[in-house]
Nucleic acid binder design. Structure first.
Length: 961
RNA sequence: GCAGGGGUAGCCAAGUCUGGCCAACGGCGCAAGGCUUAGGACCUUGUCCUUAGUGGUACCACGGUUCGAAUCCGUGCCCCUGCACCA
């Protein structure tokens, strides 16, 4: 079968657009359904995996539309941040990978030339997403409402949001420590390294820097383990490093040059005033904070001047590096040459037990070095040893008696207490650093900078948190696990920095225009903005009209129409129209987004709604989707999927892709992309056309029992599908519609079904059900059936009483069970049957069976009672022994059955009748020339092996020869 | 570190909340047959062991609750994901 998917897609998309199916306007007679997917960030081309969530969104919306809802499904893009800037920079410096990607995606050189400008990048990709992705995939989205976070009208909306947050008391300012380049200001540290030359995976490290008194100055040692001060034995200085004196207030601090530069970023009052040579330090002593202990200063080349403050306090009991450092000096006295340190003084240094950890002796560092055979400072195992000791000591260790008032306390707890004690007494300061070297694009080293007046949104606010949590309980949140987890996430969510400076696209912060609103903060309330964007896009309102009063009125029902209209300079009728639009469509029914939004976007989306909009506008649902990946994580070339999205659409067809997304797995697991799989879905699509052809061209036969069966099955599946879609289980819909129903159809045909009326009813119903997932194919088939309407605008089937036929289904199930049994027997015996004898149980067994069913249904499954009643019954032809035996096995069977099954099995039907009318079918199925149907009590029965009496109700005995 | 998810037959993947039509949906792969005769198409049957339709063994491992467990509880082993100025 040849199907030109591309042409078919174009044809129907044009038709939908002509009919305006995608447009969403108020209709007071219909209930609204409003779904968005979390808009993508504009950072480059998307790949086929990204289309999964979007496609599911469209399928859900199409389903809802067909169920009679008035559906709103707008799309937009998120351009805030540095993604577009980074992209433009790559184009500007003609990065080969970037240029190749652009060309692969069909971007001509003229366009490429324009993409050195970030705004052009945004505009370019907005077009790509809209035309090459979303429209290409047949989405029925209201394109008039498209918006982007850097549009001037959108920015007015964000300004309003920030103003309202402030008025609601949800903004606050406090110091903050963030990565920054000394020249270019704030930079983003992330793996894509858009701002950086290297160091994208660095993390923020919070040290405590302890002050060790030395004459009139302090040595500043950064540590992660302040609780180990009790085990201090010495101090480490790198004999080759560059040290300086920094003046901080009226104190003089000594630290490495690099450390001092970091210090300057973190404290405005710090100034570097002098250099100092390491040999002036080594060999002298300093006084430890808190304990007041005097300790010697020793050399160690392992002290990295670039890490922390470039000075290290030594705790050989628990730090393998420190222990081996001492060992090293003892064994290499030449390292002490020219330094004022004697071997005798070294020999006096003994590790002090400070932490008792289960499984370890008093000096774990010595122990682990021994165990792992570490003897040299150059041994790479030192790192592992350090981690091991730290992990077990921190989680399970207790402070020993040397810790004074902290003795016996868990390390985890002592650490925090000692830290705050030292910082509060001025004996230590917080000191921030990065876990690895981070270098800005400009070549400068990125450091942690103190931002004294950072703005935050106070998501820790008690009232806001509580309201959000209780509202989340009322929402439809999928999957179930996330419904449960979101409670904890909302509780955990703290203040969040909401503005930033630097190289960044986004809205200027209205309270202080030196800031730009950060990328999560401007993407929380936006679903409601789609209800306004259309008016801005159509130039009915302009950004100047979009004042605080305007938004207050349309989003919060505040103020009088006339008065507000005058203030913001637009017509009051228009103002009312926009407000009505909001109140008709809002709240949002579903926000669908990827799993990465679970701890970031979804909570703030919810809390901003709760904090700023009236309760009637709080969102109703969230769906989280997992990804299509390439086996290892990213989409890879080996398994396919690396091609641009339009290429995939051309290769496989849009509908096969849509079916792949919907059926390959539930939304809540990651799935690897696989060309072969998609290819199979394509075949499945093609098959739909031939199925219809075959059905319609078959020679008609009169209506029979199998017609009842098919319609009843169809009806049951409709019921199941609608039930599944109540919880957005799109995979179940796909499974029933694309796999189960065709299987039913095959059985129907095989059983001789070919009644035109049934076939048309079936097709008509089935094609409607194909529409949400594979709309183009559905339209094509719908018209192939001679319908003139667009099926996308038709109603989705609902169960109908007149199709339901439980007895027809029961009969067919009985027959299929029998066929299975016969197959079993033939398989085991390897008989090719010429004659099949099927014997139905005797009447008295039937009678007993029904009675037992009645008993079981009324809750009585006791064998004794059954036997007693059986004995009292008149059962012609039955002997007591047989009755007893049968009653026992009967109750054993019934005991295992569910009520539902009991109900079904209890209804009477005529086994002999069903079998007689199917005898020909059974014969042809097995290629037998004769099928005999008989009753067990038939005197003329054919029973060469004496099996006939084994027949039970619903389980006839079988003999083959 | 903080939080969360998961281990199901050769592979992917339903089922687990609400225990019982579950030897476990569906797909893929494989085998046989059919159709057709080069099309990666389609249809049928089979695909844990055993067996005249029975029985046994199975849903990471071990233990428990129950008349009954893939499903509930406990312990252990293994894998994965997200984490805030990256959207």
């Amino acid at each position: 079968m040849v199907v030109d998917f591309a042409e078919m897609e174009k044809k129907w998309q044009r038709r939908w657009s002509e009919e305006g199916l995608e447009r969403s306007d108020i209709d007071p007679n219909k209930e609204s359904f409003f779904l968005i997917f979390a808009y993508p960030g504009v950072t480059g081309y998307l790949h086929v995996g990204h289309m999964r969530g979007y496609t599911i969104s469209d399928a859900i919306c199409r389903y809802k539309r067909m169920r009679g809802f008035n559906v709103m499904f707008p799309v937009g893009t998120h351009a805030t941040g540095n993604g577009a800037i980074a992209f433009a920079r790559r184009v500007e410096r003609r990065d080969p990978d970037t240029l190749e990607t652009l060309r692969e995606n069909g971007c001509d050189s003229e366009t490429i030339a324009k993409l050195a400008d970030p705004i052009s990048v945004v505009n370019y990709f907005n077009e790509v997403y809209l035309n090459n992705y979303w429209k290409r995939f047949g989405f029925l989205s209201d394109w008039r409402r498209f918006t982007c976070t850097i549009y001037p009208d959108y920015e007015k909306f964000i300004e309003w949001q920030m103003i309202k947050l402030n008025k609601a008391g949800l903004l606050m300012q406090k110091p903050y420590f963030a990565a920054a380049c000394p020249e270019h200001g704030p930079v983003a540290i992330d793996a894509s390294e858009t701002d950086l030359q290297r160091g994208g995976s660095a993390e923020l490290v919070e040290y405590v820097a302890l002050k060790f008194k030395m004459e009139d100055k302090f040595l500043l040692a950064a540590t992660l383990r302040p609780e180990t001060i009790f085990g201090l034995t010495n101090f480490w200085v790198n004999p080759k490093a560059d040290y300086v004196v920094a003046e901080v207030g009226d104190e003089k601090w000594i630290l490495s040059m690099a450390g001092a530069q970091k210090l300057v970023e973190q404290r405005e009052d710090a100034v570097i005033v002098a250099h100092i040579v390491p040999s002036d330090l080594i060999g002298t002593v300093c006084i430890a904070p808190y304990t007041g202990k005097e300790i010697p200063i020793l050399p160690s080349e392992l002290v990295d001047p670039g890490v922390g403050t470039g000075l290290v306090m030594s705790v050989p009991s628990d730090a393998p590096y420190d222990w081996i450092g001492l060992v090293d000096l003892r064994e290499h006295p030449e390292k002490l040459e020219g330094l004022n340190v004697t071997l005798e003084s070294l020999a006096k240094i003994d590790p002090i037990p400070i932490i008792k950890t289960p499984g370890w002796g008093p000096l774990p560092a010595l122990e682990i070095c021994e165990k792992m055979g570490i003897k040299e400072l150059s041994d790479p195992k030192l790192e592992e040893a350090t981690k091991e000791i730290y992990k077990s000591g921190f989680h399970r260790g207790l402070m020993t008696e040397v810790a004074g008032e902290y003795a016996g306390m868990p390390v985890e707890q002592a650490k925090d207490m000692i830290k705050s004690l030292l910082t509060e007494s001025g004996e230590a300061i917080d000191f921030y650093d990065l876990s690895e070297e981070v270098v800005c694009r400009c070549g400068n080293r990125v450091m942690i900078k103190r931002i004294p007046d950072q703005w935050f949104i106070d998501y820790a606010d008690r009232e806001l948190t509580d309201k959000s949590k209780s509202h989340a309980e009322e929402m439809s949140i999928f999957p179930r696990e996330y419904y449960d987890n979101i409670q904890g996430i909302l509780e955990w969510f703290r203040e969040r920095a909401c503005v930033r400076q630097g190289n960044w696209l986004g809205t200027k912060f209205p309270l202080d225009r030196k800031w730009i609103v950060e990328a999560i903060a401007d993407s929380t309330l936006y679903p409601v903005y789609y209800l306004i964007s259309m008016y801005a896009n159509e130039r009915l309102i302009s950004p100047e009209n979009m004042t605080e009063d305007f938004f207050d009125f349309v989003l919060r029902d505040e103020g009088g129409a006339e008065e507000v209209a005058e203030k913001c300079g637009i017509d009051s009728a228009l103002l009312l129209r926009i407000r009505d639009e909001v109140s008709y469509w809002y709240p949002l029914s579903i926000n669908l987004g990827g799993k990465e939004h679970m701890t970031v976007h979804f909570p703030v989306f919810l809390m901003n709604h709760v904090g700023l909009l009236p309760k009637k506008y709080w969102p109703r649902g969230i769906i989280v989707n997992w990804y299509i990946t390439g086996g290892g994580g990213k989409i890879s070339k080996s398994k396919g999927g690396a091609q641009p999205i339009p290429g995939a659409a051309a290769k496989f067809g849009v509908d096969p892709l849509r079916l792949f997304y919907a059926h390959v797995a539930s939304l809540y697991v990651d799935v690897a992309w696989d060309d072969d799989k998609v290819e199979h879905y394509k075949n499945r699509m093609l098959r739909l056309f031939s199925i219809m052809d075959e059905l319609l061209s078959a020679e008609e036969k009169p209506r029979s029992r199998i017609d009842d069966w098919l319609l009843s099955r169809l009806n049951e599946r409709i019921r199941r599908i609608n039930e599944a879609m109540d919880v957005y289980d799109i995979r179940s819909l796909a499974n029933e519609v694309y796999f189960e129903l065709p299987a039913d159809l095959r059985w129907y045909t095989r059983r001789g079904g070919a009644f035109r009326g049934t076939i048309e009813s079936f097709l008509e119903t089935w094609i409607r059900m194909l529409t949400p997932i594979t709309p183009h194919v559905a339209e094509e088939l719908w018209h192939g059936l001679g319908r003139k309407s667009t099926v996308s605008a038709e109603r989705f089937p609902e169960p109908r009483e007149d199709w339901s036929n439980p007895s027809a289904e029961a009969e067919e199930e009985y027959l299929r069970g029998l066929i299975e049994d016969i197959s079993q027997i033939l398989k085991v015996t390897k008989i090719t049957p010429d004659k099949l004898v099927i014997t139905v149980a005797t009447d008295w067994k039937m009678e007993l069976f029904y009675m037992a069913c009645q008993m079981a249904r009324s809750g009585n499954r006791d064998v004794g009672v059954l036997i007693k009643s059986a004995m009292g019954m008149e059962l012609p032809g039955a002997d007591k022994k047989a009755v007893l035996k049968f009653a026992k096995s009967l109750m054993a069977d019934l005991a295992k059955m569910t009520d539902d099954l009991l109900d079904r099995i209890s209804s009477k039907f005529d086994e002999v009748g069903v079998l007689s009318s199917s005898a020909d079918f059974i014969a042809s199925y097995f290629g037998a020339s004769e099928v005999v149907i008989q009753k067990a009590d038939d005197e003329k029965r054919y029973d060469p092996t004496g099996k006939a009496d084994a027949a039970k109700p619903r389980r006839p005995s079988i003999f083959a020869e």
